[in-house]
């Protein structure tokens, strides 16, 4: 057990026990958001930054009162940004909003249909953000060369998509994610595409440092129960990775001894 107890996720110098990062979008209300995040066991929680006239029901508490920065590491994202400039402005606003906190999730999107990362704009935004002292976790394509460039630029985590944001299609190109992990010296997380618990477990069994998800929990019929399932899947997948799976074989290998048969 001691091996597992010491098995912490390290992002930008901070240690975390949970390897599940969750978003706060698409929930029915704040009560459901709060209950699902608690059930997930996540310590890093993403939020979006929006104009004050957009967003929540005025009768509800503020998101940061429910998901308190005292209890969680808040990871503001740049979701909805289609240019490097907008993403950089959003990160600066987020840093001010959170009292000087430098950790951000950069995502610069290419189009509304796929929400696929625009890597040239992402690289451009990364350059500015790193220069300005941000700890940048980057949502990116599963392109190993783009991942190498991001690492060389000084990001603190590479987060390739498993499949399109909100699609729930799972990890469609595990080979590329493996190639990215082989050369990376910083955490590689799967961000986007997880549909159910087995997808999360697969990412962790492959050796990903963590998984970031939102819709898989929020769009489940019972989000709180799915959050709990994801918590277990992440732990199970991580332990299986550390344990090292048996080799695959073409033919059977008896589990019971052959000696002493009647």
């Amino acid at each position: 057990m001691s091996e597992q107890n010491n098995d912490q996720l390290i992002i930008a110098g901070a240690s975390y026990n949970s390897r599940l990062l969750v978003g706060t979008g698409k929930y029915k209300d704040m009560a459901e958001t709060e209950a699902a995040i608690a059930a997930s066991g996540a310590e890093i929680v993403t939020v979006a930054v929006r104009r004050t006239n957009i967003g929540q029901n005025p009768d509800e508490p503020n998101l940061l009162d429910v998901i308190s920065p005292d209890k969680y590491t808040i990871l503001p994202n740049t979701a909805g940004c289609y240019t490097a400039d907008d993403a950089v402005r959003t990160c600066r606003l987020a840093r001010e909003l959170l009292g000087g906190h430098n950790l951000v999730k950069l995502e610069v999107l290419g189009d509304q249909k796929t929400l696929y990362p625009d890597m040239s704009e992402t690289l451009k935004a990364t350059e500015t953000l790193v220069k300005e002292g941000f700890d940048v976790m980057v949502y990116c394509s599963d392109d190993p060369i783009a991942a190498q460039k991001l690492e060389a630029m000084g990001v603190c985590a590479i987060m390739p998509l498993g499949s399109l944001i909100g699609s729930g299609l799972g990890i469609l190109n595990p080979h590329n994610i493996r190639i990215i992990m082989e050369s990376a010296n910083i955490p590689v997380l799967v961000d986007a595409g997880v549909g159910t618990a087995s997808d999360a477990a697969i990412a962790m069994e492959m050796g990903c440092e963590a998984v970031l998800m939102n819709t898989a929990i929020a769009a489940a019929k019972n989000p709180v129960l799915m959050a709990s399932a994801m918590c277990k899947a992440i732990e199970a997948g991580r332990e299986a990775y550390l344990a090292g799976r048996m080799p695959r074989k073409k033919y059977a290998s008896a589990s019971s001894p052959m000696d002493g048969l009647i």
Binding site: G23, G25, T33, V47, V49, L63, A79, E96
Partner: peptide, 28 residues
């Protein structure tokens, strides 16, 4: 340009200024 909270009281606005006022909401 970001205006830190500590400077809100001293920052006078002028005609034609463009502002963004943002908060955190649910997102992934």
């Amino acid at each position: 340009e970001i205006v830190p909270r500590s400077e809100h009281g001293q920052t006078a606005l002028k005609s034609g200024d463009k502002l963004e006022v943002v908060h955190a909401i649910g997102g992934g």
